[in-house]
């Protein structure tokens, strides 16, 4: 079956200008540079990586909020670049977005009922009394009381506002929701409520999610497949169990080893990979493998030749690394207590 979303060699470069009177282009931010990924109907693809690696830009390109400078994106088989008129309208309805701060996107002068009714009317999904009924249904679907339809956004807590954001997305009856850091700003106990809600809704409505987050444990929990990004590129992609259980890319391993786990025994004696330095600038990414400047197992060829995504064997994810086999040996077991050595 054809995937719902197919991202092919996506490139999004931003020109950077300087100068007070005569602006001139001084460089290019390679925010996304050659990303391939697919999202299937009803699945959750997790997109993880450190800030600035291009996650949101991929999401925005899929929403057609950001024009690619290269490559293409197919939604349900059609190229986004060619969408017009009614097809465009339908696309806008079928692909929705929820983000980190729902408050910023909620009109403070509109009641929650009005917020939810707006897309229903815009897309002509219900008429007359059915609109109000649908609003109440949406509220209870996201765990809010239907009697809250008359309240305004400021009367809700952070977790409740995220529920309103989700309800507004659902009002459009989408096929996929791009969730851009939807729980990052929430307290731990509230995060779990929202994660559970998103999982329940997926099951009931067979929604697909592109779930963007920098939190590796939330991504692990919610995703069926995971893509790990570094400096504008996907460095590893595969089934969640493979990526987390036997990561093939040294960057994925470093990320996983850096996440503290709530168990003092493991923390005291686990192996850590402490990466040196900061992520290089996306305006001037290194030639060859972009991770080479921080990689603990870098070799000469890595600095000159960029590896492409390959699968070592049928049971592993795809990884863009020249030394996939060795990277697994680098840190055989991520979480069982060991000697507490540090790899740099």
């Amino acid at each position: 079956m054809k995937p719902l979303v197919s991202v092919e060699n996506l490139q999004v470069h931003f020109p950077v200008y300087r100068g007070l009177v005569f602006e001139r282009q001084v460089g290019t931010v390679q925010a996304v540079d050659g990303v391939d990924l697919q999202i299937r109907r009803g699945e959750t693809l997790g997109l993880v990586g450190e800030s600035g690696c291009g996650k949101s830009t991929v999401g925005r390109a899929i929403l057609r909020l950001q024009r690619p400078t290269g490559g293409r994106i197919l939604f349900d088989g059609s190229d986004l670049a060619g969408l017009e008129g009614e097809a465009m309208r339908t696309f806008r309805r079928r692909v929705q977005l929820i983000f980190q701060d729902p408050y910023a996107s909620l009109n403070p002068r509109m009641s929650v009922g009005e917020v939810l009714a707006e897309p229903i009317l815009l897309y002509g999904l219900r008429e007359g009394a059915a609109v109000g009924e649908r609003v109440r249904e949406l509220l209870s679907l996201v765990g809010l009381s239907p009697s809250h339809a008359g309240r305004y956004p400021h009367e809700f807590s952070g977790g409740q506002r995220q529920r309103i954001g989700i309800a507004r997305a659902l009002a459009c009856e989408p096929d996929i929701i791009v969730c851009d850091e939807p729980v990052s700003a929430l307290d731990v106990s509230i995060q779990a409520q929202i994660v559970n809600l998103l999982q329940d809704l997926q099951e009931r409505l067979s929604l697909a999610y592109l779930f963007i987050a920098h939190s590796l444990n939330v991504i692990k929990h919610i995703s069926s497949r995971v893509a790990v990004m570094y400096l504008g590129q996907v460095v590893e992609i595969g089934d969640t169990a493979d990526v987390y259980g036997a990561a093939s890319h040294p960057y994925t391993r470093a990320l996983l080893s850096a996440v503290p786990v709530p168990d003092p025994e493991i923390e005291r004696r686990r192996t850590r990979i402490i990466l040196q330095g900061d992520v290089p600038s996306p305006m001037d990414p290194p030639p060859g493998c972009r991770f080479a400047s921080r990689c603990p197992i870098v070799q000469d060829r890595c600095r000159t030749n960029a590896p492409s995504l390959v699968q070592a064997d049928a049971n592993t994810s795809l990884a863009a690394c020249w030394r996939t086999a060795e990277s697994q040996a680098l840190m055989p077991d991520l979480f069982s207590p060991q000697t507490g050595e540090t790899i740099r």
Binding site: D187, S189, I190, Q191, V195, N217, T240, L256
Partner: peptide, 23 residues
């Protein structure tokens, strides 16, 4: 709190056990 956080060091539970309500 411990029940609310997804764990990297354990196999994924199907569901988290959140604390209801708000702080």
């Amino acid at each position: 709190l411990l029940g609310s956080v997804p764990r990297l060091d354990r196999p994924s539970e199907r569901r988290l056990v959140p604390i209801t309500g708000t702080p």
